[in-house]
Every structure is written in C-alpha cells, then in structure tokens.
Write a protein that binds this DNA or RNA. Structure first.
Lengths: 294, 294
DNA sequence: CGGGTCTTTGATTAGGTTCAATAAGAGTGG
DNA sequence: CCACTCTTATTGAACCTAATCAAAGACCCG
C-alpha cells in the first residue's frame, strides 16, 4: 500500500500531460524531493510522529522569474507549496486589469481556490526564481485518510488562508493608505524574519504597481507613502530596498501627521505621533490623532 | 460502527457544556434534525448516493434576532449551516469598531475561521430569527473518512468561501462606491432568487451601517447611492424595502453619470450609460464612461 | 548605449468622508 | 393610545484623502 502511493505520486508528478495548461515549460533540472516531515515544517504545522515516513516523497519544480505557475481557468489538480522564491497570485477582471491577491513566499500554500470549481480561479506568477513543491490534490486527500494529522493540517492551512483573506478585507475596508502600506511593511518584515532573513533590511520583490493593487491603492500613492515614511524616519527607501527604522510605529500607525508639521527635524515627534498608542484624544491635534474612524 | 457515530453525534450536540462560551442560551424547542442528504442539498453540493443514510442526523438550533452564535476567541468546536434566517459575521478591531465580513443566509456555512487556531476568529450575530444546523467539527471529519464525498464536499465549501473572499478583496480594491452597492444588490437578488423568494422585491435585513461596513463605505454613502439608483430608475427604495428595476444595469454598472445629467427624465439615458458595455471610450463623456480604472 | 519598465514628484480633481440637522420608525411605559 | 426615547435613514455642505494626469529621473537588460 505504502509503496504504491510512492510510485503513483512520482509518476503523476512527472507526467507532463497533467500540466498541459501551463504556458511555460516546467523546469525539472533540480530533481529534488521532500518528505512529509519537511512539508509539515514548511507549512508551520505540527508534524505528527507517525509521519516520519521517508517513503512519501513530493516532487519539487523550479520556475524562473516571470513564468506562470497556473492560469485562470486551467484545470485544477495540484496544490503548490513555496520552498523558496517569491510569487504573486492575481485575478484578472473583465477589462484585463490585474488584482493582486497575495504574495506567496516560503511556506505558503496556493492553488486552493481551484478545488471548488476544479479550475484555478486565479493566476500565479513567479516574481523571482522559485522552487515549488507539488501536492497532487487527489493523492494528498487519499494520504490524508491514512494520516489523520495530515488531513487536519489541510483543513488548518485552508482555514488560515481564510483568516488571512478576512484580515485583508478588513484592512481594505477600514484603513487609510498610510496604515495599509505600514502594515504591509510590517508583515513583510515578519515574514522575512521567520524565513531567516533580516527583518530590518530587505528588497521588495514586487513593483509599486503590484503593491498598490494588493493594497487597493495606486502606485503613486504607494510611492508617496513610502517617501513620507522615509521623510519622518520610519523607514529608509531606495527603489526596491527597504530599511525598517521604527517597526513599532509602523505596526500601530493609523494616520500620518499633516505634511505641514512634517520635516526631518520633526522626525522624532512625528514618530511618537504616528504611533497608535492609547493616548487620550485631547492629547493630540484632532486631525491626526490615532483614534480610528467610525 | 455506524450506530456508534449516531449516538456520539447526538450526545455531543446535546451537551450544553460544549457551548458554554456563547453568551446567549441556546434555544432547543425546535428539536429538528437533518440527515446528510438534506445537508448536501442545503450546501448546494452534489449528494453522493452512498450518503442516503438516514441514521446520520445533525441537530438544529434556533437563535433569536440579535443573539450571538459565537464570539471572537471562543473555543471552536462546531461549524454552522444556515437552514433559515439571516446573520452577519464581524471582526472587531482594537478600538471596538465592527467590520462586517459576510451575511450568511440559507445554505451558507460559517465558523470555518475557527479551525486553524481552535478559536473563532470572528463573531456571528443573528439579524433575524434563525434556524441553524450544527456540524460538530471533529465528528464531521471522522465521518469524512468513511464518506469520501463528504470530505471532498468540505474542501469544496472551504474553497468556495476562499474564492468568495477573493472576490470581495477584488471588489474593495478596485470598484467605486456605486459599483460596490450595485453588486451587493445583484448578489442579494440572486441569493433571494435561489432561496425561492422574489428577486425583484425584498427587504434588507441589515442596516445601512452594516452594509457600509461590509462594502468598505460609510452609511451615508450607501444611503446616497441607493437614493441615486432610485432617482435614475435602477431600483426603488423605501427604508429596508428594495425593488430591483434594472438588474442588467446594476450588474454591469461601473460608474454613475455626473449628477448634473441626472434627472427623472434622463432615466433611460442614464441606465444605458451606467451599463458597462463594450462601448468604445470615444462614445461617451470621458468622466463617466465605463472603462475601468488603471 | 538605447529602449523599456519602474519610480518619484508635482499639480489638479473628484469621490467619499465627516459633520450636522432632520425625519421616520420601533419599542417602552405611563 | 400617545408621549418619549432610541435607533435608523435621509440629505446637505465643507473638507480631505487618494486618484488622475503629467513629466522627469533611475534602473535594467539586450
């Protein structure tokens, strides 16, 4: 039974016909495989002890910058886990405009939106060279029936995705442009941290346009907001390179002080003001105090 | 094996200790039960033939208007399916502001956001008297292992939720206030239609404030937009009562003509203009033609 | 080195929020 | 039953945030 699974997983993953919809040829020079334990670690879910089975192997596939992993409407059969690299997932509206939905990176699962209709609902594009792990969905659910923890892991990851989307909706519905950009930087910083990179200095892998689309803003607003954060000393910006100077202020920022009070000299005061502390309303100017909007 | 399941399902569902976190007492006067077939029908997923097992019964619970079904942080153990009635699910931010996430109604599943952290991430409130079906999660996944179709149904419904959230994000990120309200009305109309109610005349179960929160708008903007739709003849509005007059225009609306050109006489022209047809840009005034924003 | 993409910054506009006042219901108790 | 209150809805006016339009500089890659 066990060996059967392995064989089938391998043959399926290697079968080019399964992925005929992808416009880009799949790179296979890596020939890497991961076992279940590595998979669980990557997904940040507790790996059950019964799962240390070296026989279950999942294939890796490499994509180069700009290549599409899957397109909208393409028949769904596999989920993807990012082993390394950066991607974006996008929706395309009736006028061809892209709406960025997420920026999957190490440990993220994507492709889940294809389960319901049996076709991918979004498009995934590599923003850098990527190493992805293939999870043939049918095989995976079969496996879940023998390994209960695995099944629960799947529910858990899908639930996590849903919560993430909820947070996104909440952000788009309620926060100002500055707060959105600030939170975006914070979440990137945190992701880089637990990927083992520097949380204080990193390069954006996406354009201002893509960030804007993700945050429901224009690219100009994103650029201006980054410049403003730079001006008051919350971050340093140079093109794609971001340096985080005051994470706490970014984390709690709700609204920026008016530009009239902004200057390099006013930096420190501005940082204090930008922080959404529990300062009573009377303590600050009404137009930029941290009390949330109704 | 089978009878064991039934017993356990019943005893669990009846155990008040399981739901101690809910602030409102559960109403059990209904004493209704649904089998798997009814459940699948309700969820609009194909019921597998093997699932016609009258022995698996799921308990109903009634909630009155205003009662909370679950609150944020409450230990998660059951999913809910709406059998009848209307609810809202909300997130509460650090300042106590509500962000409406969804308006579950007949056939909708909610509570899924609790799977990941084992605690509900959102709060569910009844907007009318409701009849809900309880789905004890642990029991349900156990059942899924014997009934493969059921397991897949669960994945499918979760995937559908995710796609729904994606569409929401896309809407909040890209559409104008008018387009959001229009789409909201269209989706309500469609939901009422497949619940067997009139799709042309219905009562809103939520306040302008709740609609605004859901759509990322203020209650005033919602009110004004409804009034504007009424003015140009797309709908009729009287408090909570909505009459749909031009569904197709609502469906394709991107941006409203400027108020200067709005009048009861201009109604028909306005309806044509509001429709997001493939009319070339030159055909209309640049400020209100249906070409989407960059 | 040149063409294309990406980014920054400025000026202007407009869509949506905020503040405010009024009106319309719904529920309560005398 | 009506007065009273509280919530909900409508509408107006002023303001402001972010979009739009525009232009120039930076960067990248063939």
């Amino acid at each position: 039974m066990t060996s059967t699974h392995v064989t089938e997983l391998r043959s399926d993953a290697l079968n080019p016909a399964l992925h005929a919809g992808a416009d880009a040829g799949w790179q296979r020079q890596g020939k890497l495989w991961s076992n279940l334990k590595e998979l669980c670690d990557l997904l940040r879910i507790p790996a059950a002890p019964t799962v240390h089975d070296e026989e279950f192997l999942f294939q890796h596939v490499q994509f180069k910058t700009g290549q599409r992993v899957h397109t909208i409407g393409q028949p769904f059969d596999t989920l993807f886990i990012v082993h390394s690299g950066f991607l974006k997932t996008v929706l395309i509206d009736e006028f061809g405009n892209e709406q960025v939905l997420s920026f999957p990176m190490k440990g993220d699962l994507f492709g889940v939106d294809g389960i319901h209709t049996k076709r991918y609902a979004s498009e995934a594009v590599a923003l850098s060279n990527c190493d992805l792990i293939l999870l043939p969905f049918k095989k995976f659910t079969q496996l879940g029936r023998s390994y209960v923890e695995l099944e629960h892991a799947m529910y858990s990851v899908m639930s996590r995705e849903l919560v993430r989307e909820q947070a996104m909706v909440s952000m788009l519905g309620a926060l100002s442009a500055e707060a959105r950009v600030a939170r975006f930087l914070v979440s990137l910083s945190e992701r880089f941290a637990d990927m083992g990179y520097s949380s204080k200095l990193f390069n954006l892998r996406m354009t201002r346009h893509e960030i804007g689309s993700y945050l429901g803003l224009t690219l100009e607003t994103v650029s201006r907001t980054l410049s403003a954060f730079n001006e008051i000393g919350l971050i340093t910006v140079d093109q794609r390179s971001i340096g985080i100077k005051d994470l706490e202020a970014l984390r709690t920022l709700r609204r920026l002080p008016p530009s009239s009070s902004r200057s390099k000299a006013a930096g420190r005061r501005a940082r204090m003001a930008a922080a959404g502390t529990t300062t009573p309303p009377e303590a600050g100017g009404k137009d930029w105090n941290p009390i949330a909007a109704a």
